[in-house]
């Protein structure tokens, strides 16, 4: 028995219109569930670029002279050094010996790896201990208004 054989009584009309409402709601809600992610996707993300070539380390004022900071560069660490004269230098923070993370040594103004006492000078050259070669260097640029500059580390 198909629907057309039935007399179209009030019950049928009610069921049909109920079905139409459900269907309408379903279409609207599924459309919303497509459009919402779409809208969010189109919005530019917080970090606007994959950190393959450059990364913003922070405001220049945040770094004291004669100090160093570890900065995430992609999935690897980089070391940003503010030298005693206020200049910036940046290197890969991965020790060339056994991949430990290096740190800045303020008392001797050197880069130091705690694992096996490897030392690098502020030009990134290995000067003592087991490291076989210099640290990979990155370029550092300052960007923005004077006093508000951002430190940008990028691959050379």
């Amino acid at each position: 028995m198909s629907a057309s054989d039935r007399p179209s009584g009030p019950g049928t009309i009610q069921r049909r219109s109920f079905l139409d409402i459900v269907l309408g709601l379903g279409f609207v809600s599924t459309a919303a569930s497509f459009l919402y992610p779409l809208w969010r996707y189109l919005n530019p993300p917080a970090t606007v670029e994959a950190a393959t070539n450059s990364v913003i380390a922070g405001k220049a004022a945040e770094f004291r002279p004669n100090s160093g900071a570890i900065v995430k560069f992609g999935s690897k660490p980089a070391i940003l050094i503010r030298m005693p004269d206020g200049q910036f230098r940046a290197y890969s923070a991965i020790c060339t010996h056994l991949d430990c993370t290096v740190q800045y040594k303020g008392d001797t103004s050197q880069i130091w790896c705690a694992c096996h006492n490897g030392l690098y000078d502020l030009a990134g050259n290995n000067v003592s201990g087991p490291p076989p070669r210099p640290l990979d260097a990155f370029a550092v640029n300052l960007r923005g208004e004077p006093g508000q500059e951002e430190v940008v580390i990028s691959r050379t």
């Binding site: 198909s2 629907a3 057309s4 049928t12 069921r15 049909r16 079905l19 139409d20 459900v22 269907l23 379903g26 279409f27 809600s29 599924t30 569930s33």
Partner: peptide, 23 residues
Amino acid sequence: AISLAAILLVVVALQLKIRTLKP
């Protein structure tokens, strides 16, 4: 899962709707 449920709801509702159509 919620949007999946909405999708399935539409599928079921469509199925019912098709049955109500006149041949």
